[in-house]
């Protein structure tokens, strides 16, 4: 049982089925959608999401790392307003034919040593290191230079002129 639990939770943490480009497609309907919660949480209660997701947390089960990434939007206080636990049941009627957009392809650089462009929406992602830090999302690239704190000095979103891919301000 523990093994199955581990497999399932690992899968969910890692992004389930996987799909091109999106770091965690298994828990998001489309790029920029709030991920569903891949573990049980109190249904009522005040919840203590920040207990793990405040500063980020890494645990090791059977040598396999699992992370509770730091929230990228610590200013927002009503976690379960957007994040829900998915039971695995699909829909009540028929099936969905919605195909969500994925973020742009990662790692684009104008030349081999240029800083890569940011391939995903930035809304509600105010803290880059919450995903790209040491305790960040296992599927996001970890920054090799976390001591430099001004990320947007070098990394900019994929050229918005290539597509109005971020909502206009």
């Amino acid at each position: 049982m523990r093994r199955i639990f581990l497999v399932v939770t690992t899968t969910l943490l890692l992004g389930g089925c996987g799909d091109g480009g999106d770091p965690r497609p298994g828990t998001r309907a489309y790029a920029g959608a709030p991920p569903t919660i891949p573990h049980q949480v109190e249904s009522l209660g005040r919840g203590n999401c920040l207990g793990c997701h405040g500063a980020g947390l890494e645990v090791s089960l059977d040598g396999d790392k699992q992370r509770g990434p730091e929230t990228p939007h610590p200013n927002q206080l009503s976690c379960r307003q957007c994040h829900v636990v998915s039971s695995g049941e699909s829909v009540a009627f028929g099936h969905t034919i919605f195909q969500g957009a994925l973020p742009g392809k990662g790692g684009n650089r104008s030349h081999p040593i240029a800083p890569p462009l940011i391939p995903h929406p930035l809304q509600n992602r105010k803290e880059c290191l919450s995903c790209h830090g040491d305790l960040g999302d296992l599927k996001a690239p970890t920054s090799s230079h976390q001591d430099r704190l001004s990320c947007s000095q070098c990394h900019i979103p994929l050229n918005p002129e290539l597509g109005a891919w971020l909502p206009p301000k």
């Binding site: 199955i4 497999v7 399932v8 899968t11 389930g16 089925c17 996987g18 799909d19 497609p25 298994g26 828990t27 998001r28 309907a29 569903t36 998915s86 695995g88 049941e89 699909s90 099936h95 969905t96 034919i97 919605f98 195909q99």
Partner: peptide, 12 residues
């Protein structure tokens, strides 16, 4: 294990 797992279904 989870053939009906919600987000898998559409992407598969």
């Amino acid at each position: 294990i989870l053939p009906t797992f919600s987000s898998c279904a559409p992407s598969l």
